[in-house]
Design a protein around this nucleic acid. Structure first.
Lengths: 167, 167
DNA sequence: TTACTTTTGTTACAATATAACATCACGTTC
DNA sequence: GAACGTGATGTTATATTGTAACAAAAGTAA
């Protein structure tokens, strides 16, 4: 029997209360930063909030536009530095295949995840599947390879978008 | 019992004859194109050859520089169009985490692969592991997600580089 | 040859990301 | 509070990766 994957952040259903979802993520980030002596400054908090504005990975320049619209003095380094902070502490993930960033609701600098990304709605579901992990770990062992980081991104169509297309 | 992964293109050992390796890949590409009525033009062949100049994924602009050095009239679209052709027919892969391209020695437009990429020597090993595939397929099934493409890239240190670092 | 399609050349630009240095804000020590 | 040191942000410029759009050339078939 294979272990059950942990659906850390699956595709949200129709009655998903996203405001609560985002607030919870921000609270977790605040708690995490307080406990680790990190400064979740106003800028960093706002960038995190913007990343969490949906479950669709968002590009750095989209975030930049939003900051500027809000009246902040922001340039590319403004955004990238905040993103780096959030990435380093596991508060967001980078989706390499999209050059975009998505929130993570289980902070901690040292965790890997797998993403299913819908080309229809653009949403990304984060999975933590021990079966994938162990398969990769076994291959690494066979190769004598020591793993530093992983990029696992599966693109396709989510259930709801498939259903929508059928009609 | 889990199936054995197929090491499609593992980290080459010290006595790896890369000239032969590259020539074989080019022959395979020629055969593949002939059989499928595709035109492996001089430019495309040369780009493929340059990609195969090592097992290190190579950037588009590096290829461009080399073409220009050789006296070809090349601009970014020159390279990207050739890369697109080679990608579409499974003759190379794109490594999203590096924005770089690496040769594939089992042509065919519709195959997925997993890569182990050494941060020491820069080489990429292509693996086709059914265990990883099936774990992902099971997650997709559980989510009702239909897979279109995959990006699976594991970064770390290969056996030889680990050994080298120990001394 | 002519007509047609595919490939390549060419110019311009879009999108993503970083380097380098100045300034500001915050906490600590005196 | 004043002086200091450190980390965060502002600012300008530039590097890197990738595309759009159209013209010219090369291959293919009637």
């Amino acid at each position: 029997m294979r272990k059950r994957p942990i659906p850390l952040s699956p595709f949200p259903d129709n009655r998903h209360d996203h405001a609560a979802c985002r607030e919870q993520a921000l609270l977790q980030a605040e708690t995490y930063c307080r406990r680790h002596g990190l400064r979740l400054t106003s800028l960093r908090r706002r960038v995190l909030e913007l990343v969490w504005s949906s479950h669709q990975p968002v590009g750095a320049y989209t975030l930049l536009e939003q900051l500027v619209t809000e009246g902040r003095k922001a340039a590319p380094p403004t955004v990238y530095r905040s993103l780096d902070f959030l990435l380093n502490h596991g508060l967001i993930h980078r989706i390499a295949s999209l050059n975009a960033y998505v929130g993570c609701n289980h902070p901690g600098s040292d965790h890997e995840a797998q993403f299913f990304i819908c080309v229809g709605c653009g949403q990304a579901a984060e999975i933590g599947d021990p079966s994938i992990e162990s398969a990769i770990a076994q291959d690494a062992k066979a190769l004598g390879f020591s793993i530093a980081s992983q990029t696992i991104e599966v693109a396709g169509t989510c259930a709801r978008c498939r259903e929508a297309k059928r009609t």
